[in-house]
Nucleic acid binder design. Structure first.
Length: 461
RNA sequence: UCCCCAGUAGCUCAGUCGGCAGAGCAGAUGGCUGUUAACCAUCGGGUCCGCGGUUCAAGUCCGUGCUGGGGAGCCA
C-alpha cells in the first residue's frame, strides 16, 4: 500500500502518479448519474484535491452518502484533470470512510460569519479562511526565529511565572496554590509567606526585564512567548493571553531600536507574502481588498519617524475634529494615532521621544529632562504594533525614576544590579504577534488570529 | 468599566403601518453523462434570546436581564 501523501505535495507534482494515498476531510460532494466528485482537504494547503469516484467502485452506494465533514482515505491515480478548475485530480481506485460526520456538522459549504465560527472555535480551523490564518501563524513564528537567527540574536526563554508586578505593564493574573475558600490571612491580607513561592506571584505581562539581563551578557537577544494581561479590555485589538516578540540589544540606542523594528516588520511581511502566497491571496480577495497595496507599501517604503512634539504639532494644525483635543504632554489617543498613520502619512509611523510622565520608569531620560527615549510603531487600522525604548542605563537616574513613580527599590535589586556592573546603553521593544498577523491578513478582530482566544468572560475552549 | 448596535429555522438573512412565521443554503428522498459553494424536483425543520408590561392582537412598541459585536480607556 502506498504511503500517505499530503495534498499540497500532490498538487505540486510535476507528473502523473500511478498509485497514491490521500487522507483528509470532505468539503463537498457532487454527484452525477454514474460517478461523484469529492473535494478533499487535509489542511496541508488551501486547495482541495478533486477526487473522481466512479460508479464501478464496490462501495459506490456508500460513497454517495459521504457527507461534508467526513474523514476519508482514498487510494488512486493522480492524473491531469479533464475539468477546468484544477490541474490534477485523483481517480479513486478505493474510497474508505474513516469516519462519517452526521448531518448536524455545523460547517457548511458556504461562508459563515466570524461570530458564528468563534462560537465553534474547535472546528473553525477546518474552514478555508481559518486554515489559512493558522498556516500563516505557523509560518510567521518560524520567520521570526529565522529573522533573528540571521542576525545572530539568541533566543531566551523568559519565565512565565513572575514575582509581583515588577514589569509594570498592566494587571496581573494571580498564580497561587493557596486555598481561595480558606485564604490564610495576616493583618487582613493574604499571607503570601504561606504560598508556594513564599511571595505574591503572577503570570508574566512582559519578558523585558528578564531579557535585558541576557542582552547585558549575550549581546543581542529576544524572547517570544505567551504574555498575560488581566485588563478588562473589550476591543478588537486586545486579548488576555497573547504572544509577544521582545528583542533586546546591548550597545544600541533608540535609533538602532527603530531600525530593527522597521526592518523586522518589513522583512516579515516580505517573507510571508512570498511563503504564503496562496493563503494571503484569499485574504486579499475576501477579507481586505486593499491588503496587497498595504503590504507592498510597508515593504517598499520607509516608515515615517516623528518626534512626539512634531506629532502634536501636526495634530494641532490638522483640520480634523477630534473628540479629545490634543495637548502637549498628553498621551496620543487612538483617534490621533489613526489620523497620523491612516490619513496624514498613509503608512507606518514611528513616534518617539515621549513626555516622561506618560511612560514607564525604565525608559532612558533624554537630555532635556522632559522626554524619554521611547518609541511606538503605529500602523494603519491596528494602531500600536510595537512599543519600545532605549533603557535607562545610569544607575542614579534609574533610582531617581523609581523613586518618582513610588515603586519599591527593593523589588528591583537585581534589575538595578545590572546598572552597577558594566552597565551599557541598550534598547528593545515588544511586538504584538497577533497584531502583526492582523496586519498581514487584514483580519480586523484579534480573536480571529489566535486559536482559542481568551477575553473577559470568555474561555469556553 | 463607559457609550452605541444587534439577537427570527442547523447557517445567512427578509419580515412593510402592530394583524396567519418567510426565502436561500444545509439535511432527507428522487432525478441528472465531467462537476467546481454543481444543477432540478419534493419533503421535514421555529422557545422569533429570557422575563415583565402596553394592546382585542407583539417577531414588531416599552422596561429589564443575558449574550454577542463596534467604539473608548488600558496596551502588544
Amino acid at each position: 500500500m502506498a504511503k500517505r501523501t499530503k495534498i499540497n505535495t500532490l498538487l505540486n507534482s510535476p507528473e502523473p502518479i500511478d498509485d497514491v494515498l490521500v487522507k483528509g476531510w470532505v468539503r463537498t460532494r457532487r454527484d452525477s448519474k454514474t460517478f461523484s466528485f469529492i473535494e478533499v482537504n487535509d489542511g496541508s494547503c488551501l486547495k482541495n484535491i478533486q477526487v473522481v469516484a466512479d460508479g464501478s467502485l464496490g462501495n459506490y452506494e456508500d460513497v454517495k452518502k459521504i457527507t461534508t465533514g467526513s474523514a476519508v482515505s482514498i487510494q488512486g491515480k493522480l492524473v491531469a484533470s479533464q475539468g477546468k478548475g484544477q490541474h490534477w485530480e485523483l481517480i479513486a481506485t478505493q474510497v474508505n470512510l474513516i469516519h462519517m460526520a452526521p448531518e448536524d456538522f455545523p460547517l457548511q459549504k458556504k461562508r459563515h460569519s466570524d461570530k458564528f465560527l468563534r462560537s465553534i472555535a474547535h472546528l473553525r480551523p477546518r474552514t478555508n479562511k481559518y486554515g489559512a490564518i493558522f498556516r500563516i501563524r505557523s509560518e510567521l513564528s518560524y520567520a521570526i526565529h529565522h529573522f533573528f537567527k540571521q542576525r545572530d540574536f539568541r533566543y531566551i526563554h523568559t519565565p512565565i511565572i513572575t514575582s509581583s508586578d515588577c514589569e509594570g505593564a498592566g494587571e496581573l493574573f494571580r498564580v497561587t496554590t493557596m486555598p481561595l475558600d480558606n485564604l490564610p490571612l495576616k493583618d487582613g491580607k493574604p499571607d503570601y509567606l504561606n504560598d508556594f513561592f513564599g511571595k505574591e506571584t503572577g503570570l508574566t505581562v512582559s519578558g523585558q526585564l528578564a531579557v535585558e539581563m541576557f542582552a547585558l551578557s549575550l549581546g543581542d537577544v529576544y524572547t517570544f512567548g505567551p504574555t498575560f494581561r488581566a485588563e478588562n479590555s473589550n476591543t478588537s485589538r486586545h486579548v488576555a493571553e497573547f504572544w509577544m516578540v521582545e528583542p533586546e540589544m546591548a550597545f544600541c540606542d533608540l535609533e538602532g531600536n527603530m531600525d530593527l523594528g522597521e526592518e523586522m516588520i518589513q522583512d516579515l511581511c516580505g517573507t510571508i507574502l512570498q511563503n504564503c502566497k496562496e493563503d494571503i491571496e484569499l485574504f486579499a480577495r475576501f477579507v481586505d481588498k486593499s491588503l496587497m497595496k498595504t503590504l507592498e507599501g510597508i515593504i517598499n517604503s520607509s516608515f515615517v519617524r516623528l518626534p512626539y512634539l512634531e506629532a502634536v504639532d501636526i495634530l494641532k494644525h490638522s483640520n480634523k475634529k477630534f473628540e479629545f483635543k490634543i495637548k502637549k504632554g498628553m498621551d496620543l489617543q487612538s483617534e490621533h494615532e489613526r489620523y497620523l498613520t491612516e490619513e496624514h502619512f498613509k503608512k507606518p509611523v514611528i513616534i518617539y521621544d515621549y513626555p516622561k510622565d506618560i511612560k514607564a520608569f525604565y525608559m532612558r531620560l533624554n537630555d532635556d529632562g522632559e522626554t524619554v527615549a521611547a518609541m511606538d510603531v503605529l500602523v494603519p487600522k491596528i494602531g500600536e504594533i510595537i512599543g519600545g525604548s532605549q533603557r535607562e542605563e545610569r544607575l542614579s537616574v534609574l533610582e531617581q525614576r523609581i523613586a518618582e513613580t513610588a515603586l519599591s527599590k527593593d523589588t528591583y535589586w537585581w534589575y538595578l544590579d545590572s546598572r552597577r556592573f558594566g552597565s551599557v546603553p541598550h534598547s528593545g521593544f515588544g511586538l504584538g504577534f497577533e497584531r502583526l498577523l492582523m496586519l498581514l491578513t487584514g483580519v480586523s478582530n484579534i480573536r480571529d488570529v489566535i486559536p482559542f482566544p481568551r477575553t473577559p468572560n470568555s474561555i469556553e475552549f
